[in-house]
Design a protein around this nucleic acid. Structure first.
Lengths: 362, 362
DNA sequence: CTGAAAGCGCTAACAA
DNA sequence: TTGTTAGCGCTTTCAG
């Protein structure tokens, strides 16, 4: 693994200038066929691989798009379920990779390491032409500066109005509308009136929007609606979901009729906790989630939830980035709202078969 | 989005030399705190982002690992199932990303575009310190040259003996042992004796190994074992699996007692085809797959299969690469064989609950 | 169609 | 502790 061969080596070996070697790769037709073959042969012999770095430096572009996502690994998910637990990030990655490929880009992905020392974004930002950031992965201020230099699109988490970040492109899903529709379903179609919302302790615009949707539905139906989530889980994991369910059941007034969880992971945890306590779902308590992770269809009862179009989100992110990179420099920030889908399954009382689901919002 | 600021801009603005600016990022402690703050402040004001390209060029390393994978998208999978269809590549990506993060690397992923013009590997290879390649994603010869210049690890697909590639590190799963054990189970535990293996038309060492495992089990039990797979599907998709099942059922001697499919996707397709024909599984025909994709637990009957540890494969790949990069230059090529797990579920006749599964091979 | 030369932005000795 | 000075390997005018 000595020193890697460079254009100079290839040039020398094939008796041309380095400029010609470069042309062979960047614009083959501008070189006489015979010369080209000679160069290619030399390159092959030498095991020559063009340096992406040098290329990028000289041409000021990398051909790579990036994605920064939070460390979503749920430590409580056991190995078995883990196979099935295709999370947010996985689907966004899939969507972005697909779209990126269509446009000739590769995808660089990096998750925020919890106690990470050096800035994650900086590392990614420095190696890509543009990138997407999942909400709350990166300090706002960091993005502030970076976004002045290259296209950035925020994923999930509503546009922060009047904030420094409002010049970023932005994609979100219909959190409010989705949660409102699901809640309406619980109230009107199943006749439930004592609902508890399980939110999260950390600030999350998505969770907040869901809670507001929940509230809206309650108010519209004249159902008692507390100003605050019944529980704010420390983390949105299965363990915390179970804990929340337990806490709610231990209250003086007994368990609520429905546990409306801010995400699927917590809902699954709640399902387990309820089962352990001998409560049946949806008989004694209905449970709902939000996200639409595959695990939701594996648990029994199957989980009623609001499905997010994560794959599409990834694709749209790339489209946005590509558009920005393609020119139209000063245009206004774009903000997309993607529709969600309410998946009525067993845990709300809709029976084992998944009901046909409807697109909501956007 | 004018011209991005460089070390020179930051240096000037903070009244130091570019070397100091560089130090602030690479080795903060080697700069007086006061100076450091001044530099950082200037950088912040300017929206400075270190160029990964320039860095890589100068330091001869990128801090990025890569993965090339085939375009596995199954066009037959409908959008609904797609959510659940976490494929090979997704899990390997997850595993690699995790491990890479632990070692401070980011991950660059790129799928082979079908009619892709320019060489995929070259693009990836030029931007990373080392990378993994899923079998049959890349022309052998290409890798030949590249692997002389940087660490490459092959995923799946057995080491090609006596081939040019036998100096590459290599990770595979116990295809042979897994398929043999599953087949033994069908024969001995369920008493089936007329088994048909559904393979693939394209050359695949993995599929071949599985078929050999199948044969071995048949012979060991004195079961009639044809030298060739009963069917060789054009692609390993659901549609082709269904077609294979139909073809087999239309034979003069009627359907076999068991359809042993070379992967889960085909097995799921077979399940559908059988159902359409009014045959019950496992009553009339048993069906098995290979891979352990989540979809296998969603279909009814649940799919008996051999589970591959793809996540671990990704992690091991990174470990191997990191080791190579860490020195030990001339050491011999490593070849890992990862154990698989036979998941006995409903489609072989084991009942709805998944039986405890055992690790096989390696 | 091909060559010469000037950088791209940063790191890494080596000095100071 | 900080500055100076070479490149790293490639793209890209501008000539020829």
């Amino acid at each position: 693994m000595s020193t890697a061969p460079t254009v100079y080596d290839v040039a020398e070996r094939s008796g041309v200038s380095i400029a010609t070697v470069s042309r062979v790769y960047r614009n083959p037709d501008s070189v006489r066929a015979q010369t080209r073959e000679r160069v290619l042969a030399a390159a092959r012999d030498l095991g020559y691989v063009p340096s992406g770095n040098a290329r990028g430096l000289a041409s000021r572009s990398t051909g790579v798009l990036g994605l920064c996502f939070p460390d979503y690994a749920d430590p409580d998910t056991d190995a078995e379920d883990d196979d099935a637990a295709m999370l947010y990030s996985d689907q966004i990655i899939r969507g972005m990779e697909r779209a990126a490929r269509r446009h000739g880009y590769a995808l660089l992905i990096a998750a925020s390491l919890k106690g990470g020392p050096e800035s994650l974004v900086a590392k990614v930002a420095g190696r890509v032409d543009g990138f997407a950031v999942m909400a709350r992965t990166v300090p706002t201020e960091e993005l502030e500066g970076i976004s002045r230099r290259r296209p950035v699109v925020m994923l999930a988490g509503p546009r922060e109005e009047g904030d420094h970040l409002d010049h970023l492109d932005h994609i979100e899903v219909a959190n409010f509308d989705g949660q409102r529709e699901l809640t309406r379903h619980l109230i009107e179609d199943h006749g439930l009136r004592r609902l508890a919302f399980v939110g999260s302790a950390e600030e999350s615009p998505d969770v907040e929007a869901r809670f507001q949707g929940f509230l809206a539905a309650c108010r519209a139906a004249d159902v008692d609606a507390p100003e605050e989530p019944a529980v704010r889980a420390a983390m949105m994991t299965q363990a915390e979901g179970a804990r929340a369910a337990d806490a709610l059941c231990d209250r003086a007034d007994g368990p609520p009729q429905a546990l409306v969880c801010a995400n699927d992971q917590m809902a699954v945890g709640a399902l387990h906790a309820l089962e352990r306590r001998g409560l049946t779902v949806p008989g004694d308590v209905a449970v709902t989630g939000f996200d639409g992770i595959p695990l939701g269809r594996l648990v029994r009862p199957t989980l009623t939830t609001v499905r997010q179009p994560m794959l599409r989100m990834g694709e749209e992110a790339v489209e946005l980035l590509v558009r920005r990179l393609g020119g139209t420099p000063g245009s206004d920030p774009v903000s997309l709202m993607l529709p969600v889908t309410v998946a009525r399954r067993a845990s709300c009382g809709c029976g084992p078969e998944e009901q046909s689901a409807v697109a909501i919002g956007a």
